[in-house]
Structures are given as C-alpha cells and as structure tokens.
C-alpha cells in the first residue's frame, strides 16, 4: 500500500536546492468574512501574525490563514488550500534578486518590508509573496500544479546569483 500518512510534495522526485526550500508542512486556508478567532489585517498587502498563525490579506474581506502544526478552527466559511499550494521559502535578499527576473513588483527594501505581502505574477503564473516578520525570509506561494515549473524557474534564476 502506498504511504498515506504524509502529503506528497509537488516537487517529489526533483532535486532540492539549498537556497530555495519548500515549506511542505504548512496548512493554508482561505477565509471569508469576519474572522473572530484572529485579528486579520484590514489593510491590503499586509500580513499579521498571532501565535504562529499568519493572516494575509488577499481580497476585500478575504484572508489567507497560514500556519504550522495544529490547524486552528474557525467559524467563518473557508476553503482549505493546504494541498493546493506549493510554498517556497527563500532568504529575503536572494528572493529579491530572483523575483526581479520575472516579477514586476517593487521589492526594494524601502517599499516592501517585513510583514508585507503581495500577489503578483511570475513567469505568467500567479504568485503570492510574503515577507516574514523576521525580515530574513520571503515565502512564495504558487498553485500546486505550477509548483514544479516555478521551482525549476527559481532554481534557474538563482544560477547566476550572487551578482
């Protein structure tokens, strides 16, 4: 019988890079309307963190909850996306250089700061960039079916780093 205890990564079978790490252990939920359990950011392009659960603004009245470990239960309607996304964690400085090769966002340090997030496009694929509060890493979310493609793309873009 196949192993059903673990989620299979979209990158299974590919070589991992040092710079670009997959966060395969996250749970992700899109929530609609008032989320009483957590104080989500009211401002677009912002993320808040409470007890290890990040709430990212994604649309008016809609947030993405991202966490590790135990999933929190919420009252509001939601869609589970834990399996639907591939998330890459890249050191912020490298992420800035790599993303510049295909994403039009202004990621200069003066503009895009820890605790910020933004949805945009990279190589024709929708992405979400989340600059984690610690200021050290950025998380890049893509739909799972594009995970392998974006992984290959990021690795290729990283080939000519540092510059």
């Amino acid at each position: 019988m196949p192993d059903t205890s673990q989620r299979r990564s979209a990158l299974a079978g590919t070589a991992a890079g040092d710079l670009i790490q997959e966060r395969a252990d996250l749970w992700i939920k899109r929530v609609y309307g008032d989320v009483a359990e957590i104080e989500p950011p009211r401002q677009p392009n912002r993320a808040t963190a409470n007890n290890g659960v990040h709430a990212l603004w994604v649309a008016p009245g809609e947030w993405l909850l991202v966490g590790e470990g135990e999933e929190i239960q919420i009252e509001a309607a939601s869609s589970d996306l834990s399996h639907g996304r591939t998330v890459f964690r890249i050191p912020a400085n490298a992420a800035r250089q790599i993303l510049a090769k295909g994403c039009p966002l202004d990621l200069r340090e003066t503009e895009f700061r820890p605790g910020h997030c933004a949805q945009s496009v990279l190589a024709a694929v929708t992405i979400l960039v989340h600059y984690l509060d610690d200021g050290e890493y950025m998380d890049i979310h893509v739909a799972r079916s594009y995970g392998r493609f974006i992984h290959d793309w990021l690795k290729d873009a990283a080939l000519t780093l540092p510059e």
Partner: peptide, 18 residues
C-alpha cells in the same frame, strides 16, 4: 530572456503526473 525552452510557457502537473 529566459522565456525559452521549458520556460516558454508554464507547465501544469497533476498530483499523479509522476
């Protein structure tokens, strides 16, 4: 630019592609 070869357009994979 790098929109050549496999990067000309994204490729999507199903969970059973492998």
């Amino acid at each position: 630019g790098r929109d050549v070869g496999a990067f000309l357009a994204p490729t999507r994979r199903t969970p059973m592609q492998e």
